[in-house]
């Protein structure tokens, strides 16, 4: 029980010198074995750190935490005409020479009302580029009440050189949206999809030339 057992120092007899030497050699070998094992554990844990990346992706897929490219299900489309919400339509591109704008800067809508707005993209470059739009909402807590039935952001968009495309967003604002939500900003940012060789959405063809032009921030 006690952390300090009693002890006395024995006098090492000369006859035991060989035994002591053997024991030291045994210890040294055991130490080396232990070093190797622990080093393997350390290297393994370094790999485990990287293994967390696909593991995290899987968790996100299973829990649906990052499924932004999916149409929402809308059940009740009772229109609340007594209430009007202004939706501001914002558009951005990131390191991408595309023209990207909304045809209307803003729309006023009633909660529960089915609406369509149209965005336009133009590929100003001389090469084919695949892009993906990511939506965000301001204020952030408006996101759960903004139900998209159809959106160009559900799929990657591949544009030929100089091509212009008009794309719809069909949406309903949930009547359960809190009353202090007077204005919602819907903002899309287009990112270039680097080397879009495979397309998980199945909506666009892979580009022939994969582009490796993403720049570092």
């Amino acid at each position: 029980m006690s952390n300090g057992p009693t002890h006395d120092r024995p006098a090492a007899g000369e006859s035991a010198a060989g035994a002591v030497h053997d024991r030291r050699e045994d210890t040294r070998q055991a130490n080396r074995r232990m070093l190797k094992r622990l080093a393997v554990v350390a290297v393994g844990m370094f790999g485990f750190g990287f293994l967390l990346v696909p593991f995290y992706e899987q968790i996100c897929n299973v829990t649906g935490l990052r499924e932004i490219a999916r149409a929402d299900v809308v059940e009740n489309t009772q229109v609340v005409t007594s209430r009007t919400i202004r939706l501001e339509l914002d558009s951005n591109v990131r390191h991408l020479d595309w023209g990207f704008r909304s045809l209307e800067p803003f729309v006023d809508i009633h909660p529960g009302e089915l609406r369509q707005v149209v965005y336009e993209i133009t590929n100003n470059t001389g090469r084919m580029i695949t892009g993906q739009a990511i939506p965000s909402y301001g204020p952030q807590h408006a996101a759960p009440y903004f139900k998209k039935l159809e959106c160009f952001c559900f799929a990657k968009q591949t544009l030929q050189p100089g091509e212009t495309r008009r794309m719809p967003v069909v949406f309903v604002i949930d009547p359960k949206a809190p009353d202090d939500l007077g204005t919602i900003t819907l903002s899309y940012t287009f990112f270039e999809v680097e080397g879009a060789a495979t397309d998980i959405q199945g909506a666009v063809k892979p580009p022939e030339t994969s582009t490796k032009t993403r720049s570092n921030s």
């Binding site: 554990v41 350390a42 844990m45 485990f48 750190g49």
Partner: peptide
Amino acid sequence: LIAVMPVLAGA
């Protein structure tokens, strides 16, 4: 330490 320092190194 052996279990987690390599994970930080990975991060």
